[in-house]
């Protein structure tokens, strides 16, 4: 027998109030990051000591902008989800916690978008 109300059971959101969406998103981004990270590491090795002209040329190769963008979006989404759990676990006091959770979300959005803008500027800025 469950002590949950019928409405609570139908909604299926549990005590977290958000159901399994956070957990699931973390796994989906993790799965996407497996091939993307391997590609990124392979690429980074080539960046060692590279000047800006060569980096621009690399970025203009087919697939570079697309794969780097996919990697950055998955990375910052995954980072935001992971840091959120760390904050929820270790930061006590509702005010501090909510404040840091907001900073975490804003920072992840800022980092993701600023790096995407940077890539577009380098690749297409001429």
């Amino acid at each position: 027998m469950s002590l949950q109300s019928d409405l609570g059971r139908v909604k299926g959101l549990g005590s977290s109030k958000s159901g399994t969406s956070h957990w699931w998103a973390q796994r989906v981004t993790a799965l996407a990051l497996i091939p993307l990270t391997l590609w990124f590491i392979y690429s980074t090795i080539k960046f060692v000591g590279m000047d800006l002209i060569s980096f621009g040329a690399w970025l203009n190769e087919p697939g570079s902008v697309l794969l780097l963008s996919l990697f950055l979006i998955a990375l910052f989404y995954h980072m935001q989800l992971g840091l959120q759990v760390v904050i929820e676990d270790y930061v006590h006091g509702e005010k501090n916690k909510v404040f840091l959770l907001l900073i975490n979300k804003f920072a992840a959005a800022l980092f993701a978008i600023s790096s995407l803008v940077a890539i577009i500027q380098i690749a297409y800025g001429g």
Binding site: L52, F55, G82, I122
Partner: peptide, 27 residues
Amino acid sequence: TGVGLAVGALALVYWLNSAAYGPEAFN
């Protein structure tokens, strides 16, 4: 390592933005 990689991601953002800023900043 997850938290450490978040710091690394910040360095990646800095690196990409310095490349967008120009050759001197990138170098």
